[in-house]
Design a protein around this nucleic acid. Structure first.
Lengths: 111, 111
DNA sequence: GGTTTATATGAGTAATTATTCATATGAATA
DNA sequence: TATTCATATGAATAATTACTCATATAAACC
């Protein structure tokens, strides 16, 4: 496809949004925003398999949406608040301002 | 899945990011940011079928990421700059600050 | 060094999402 | 009102992405 070789913001954004357009990864991010955690802690919190969490953290790490700090055999993941806060705020504002009834249009609700 | 019924930012963001995590839709947005356009103008600019453009504009419209103004038989689409500008700026900053060599990590480049 | 604990990886399958082609709708104009 | 132009929709298929299970790696501790 043409866009794959195209330089510019579109391509950069595509990768970025792709990383965030996943419920497991977003839930992980939401939890990590509360406090940094290890893979198993996240797996427990999200009631998901450890391998699934690992698989999903990987692309976030590659994009520096999260970072890792190894403490012994635990890997503690931390979110990049500097990047994510403004984005989440922008979406929150969007939902409030442009979406009727508290962002209903953003929730897969067809009514 | 649990997250589908869960209230809150995660779910709202999921729908939002899903809409943007697509190369065709991002390319359309990029073009519409230059100037508002009709479906056929976009199809020509992106070298894509008209029906593909229509299919892709639909979810963006539902989320108010773009808006429509009907001029006769033409449907002119306009991007919601108020929402998109801060998000794209945040990603641009992220790429510059956190990604080596101009955001290479965001471009599916494994090197 | 062997064992336990923590995380990562690979490969196959399931689920989701995108795209295409045919056709429907709907507005303008002859 | 028949025709043309512009867009939307539906349904089938293609492509992508997520998930699961088995297993590998790797650090800590005995």
């Amino acid at each position: 496809m043409g866009w794959k070789t195209k330089q510019g913001q579109t391509e950069t954004c595509y990768k970025f949004f792709t990383n965030l357009a996943n419920p497991t990864r977003l839930a992980a991010i939401e939890h990590l925003m509360e406090k940094p955690m290890s893979v198993n802690e996240l797996a427990t919190a999200l009631k998901q398999e450890q391998s699934m969490i690992s698989h999903n953290l990987k692309p976030l790490l590659q994009c520096n949406i999260i970072s890792i700090e190894k403490q012994g055999r635990k890997h503690i993941y931390t979110v990049n608040q500097e990047t994510l806060n403004p984005i989440f705020n922008a979406i929150k504002n969007h939902a409030e301002k442009f979406c009727p009834r508290g962002g209903k249009c953003l929730r897969g609700d067809k009514s």
